[in-house]
Design a binder for these strands. Sequence first.
DNA 1: TTGTAAGCGTTATCAA
DNA 2: TTGATAACGCTTACAA
Lengths: 360, 360
Amino acid sequence: MSIKKIPPSIRTNPALARATIADVARAANVSKATVSRFLNHRDQLLTKEIAARVELAIADLAYSPSPMAQALKRGRSKLIGLVVADVTNPFSVAVLRGAEKACQEAGYLLMLFNLGNDSRRESEAIEALTAYQVEGFILNTLGRDTKAAADAARHGKPVVLVDRRHQGMQADFVSLDNAGAVRLGLCHLVEAGYRELLFVSEPVRDISSREERKAAFHAFINTVAQDTVELQGHTFEGTENDEQGLDDALRSMRERAGSGLPGVLASNAVVTLRIVAAVARLGWRLGADIGLVGFDETEWAPYVGPGLSTIAQPTDELGRIAAGCLIERLRGLELPPRQIYLSGRLVTRGSSLAIANQTG
Amino acid sequence: MSIKKIPPSIRTNPALARATIADVARAANVSKATVSRFLNHRDQLLTKEIAARVELAIADLAYSPSPMAQALKRGRSKLIGLVVADVTNPFSVAVLRGAEKACQEAGYLLMLFNLGNDSRRESEAIEALTAYQVEGFILNTLGRDTKAAADAARHGKPVVLVDRRHQGMQADFVSLDNAGAVRLGLCHLVEAGYRELLFVSEPVRDISSREERKAAFHAFINTVAQDTVELQGHTFEGTENDEQGLDDALRSMRERAGSGLPGVLASNAVVTLRIVAAVARLGWRLGADIGLVGFDETEWAPYVGPGLSTIAQPTDELGRIAAGCLIERLRGLELPPRQIYLSGRLVTRGSSLAIANQTG
DNA sequence: TTGTAAGCGTTATCAA
DNA sequence: TTGATAACGCTTACAA
């Protein structure tokens, strides 16, 4: 007579080891299958009597099923992969927050992979996450290294892109209505009396949101604006180090403006700060000497200079909706790729109020 | 004769399905065990001949082992759980970033759970993460709902606390040297000529870092300072809504100061902004009318008013070291709980330069 | 040095 | 309605 099963109470301290379905089965004097049925089909097939016994045992042992084992068996893991180009980017974090919330509510957990702005690692990220059987992806990345993502999609894992489109990738896409948001900011500048406009951006490259914003700027200058008022528009793209270039761009804009007022639209929060710094270097006053509207609302916008006007993105919602799209797909929704655009909101403050600042 | 095994090539499209160890074994004409050995013990036991065959098959099929299955078998998952009180807090994000980096380098992936400032969900978070077999925890939480964390620790899962200590919890702890940092800021204010000091904090409650900062403020006022210069110190704790209270506290501080100079130390970035707003409401000039040193260096600090002096925390390093501690434990390091303190760095700007601002 | 087989904690298929 | 039993993809005694 050989000992076939070493009871878990001997294998390891019972108080410490997580109870398994076998433990519950033993305690309730039923088979593992029955416990599993109780868990997954609840009251479909079970005698009240037995169900009660199982329920008790589960409570007793504080049992909860192992998602790992479930994942292995079912091929589904209740895990969602989130790949971010840069966690330090406040926009990404806000999206992350929204997404995380929606996932939690739907019983999913988030596995995070931060690229740290190294877009070459995108495939690595997706492969690592795929290995862990994540059921789908939320991607806020450049989409340069798009192979793995396309693979994932082909393997039937739904993908949602946030803010940045991937070239030729068929997937749900959730983003700010960049064109509308840019118009919002520019209309406001024009109404506030600024006539010589400058769009300042980080290098556009192939980053879709930057492209869209720049294109919207040009469109506004070329069409809408020319009908109503005399308007000039230029753009400047520069990296963090190009202070000189930015200063020059601002100076020549002001020269072009002559007696008119120059106004700047920044393409994101980082650029906004750069412009604020440049304006300080030049000794100009925000609002009075130069108008400024920034992208992305931040906690500090109200306190810089006379307060910064901004175009606020519904970041939380972007994240929530992205997660929502994904979860719908996971529940079986079959639909051609959707494109969802959310509107920006203009927050006006002193930096775009020429008159208030001139008199005040 | 029954068909025992349906080959994977029929079960599902082979191009799409991930290869398993069995596929590799078949392709290399060896047993699964051999493949497993190749993976885990590399060249310990294998014929060159066979090793080469296995290697080839692995490359051919683009095989990589399923961490889920490994986790199930080994009980180890190469997963680390990170629980954050609030992802929108820039400090948390910075820590997250550092931790994520270190984890990636060591081959771990991060599972993130955000409490969204609802500290009651701490146990829920830890349980969810435990279910996924995370091997250890990095916690940046209040530690109010400490049961689950203690459980985890008892179950042999190492825990590292960042920034916030948990009552009675024996675990590695990584944090700013709050006392030293506070001294740094206060010494600077005193040297810059400020004599009537105020410490402004969010409600301290039981949050260890806040307690420590407040205590350090009092200690500084009571001992170090009295010997050298006449000094007064008060503290104010208020929530976001208590603008009135903050204004009053600042006003009475300035009254107490008389002809001397009042200086404020903010306990974190949020409070710093609140003070900036209050100073604007009161119509005072930062630096000249009131000195300000804030906690936490931010991207916007240089651009608010005359520039904000801050005490910068080595956030990235805190995260990296926290993750490092955890990984050491996972590798088997046995040691009593460590407490690791990193120094803050003072960044001086206009907000604490009374003279420069008065003349300028 | 390699293969066989059991088992990790589930779920699903089949009988009973 | 319930219970055996065979997977899921891997590791690891134990045999060979």
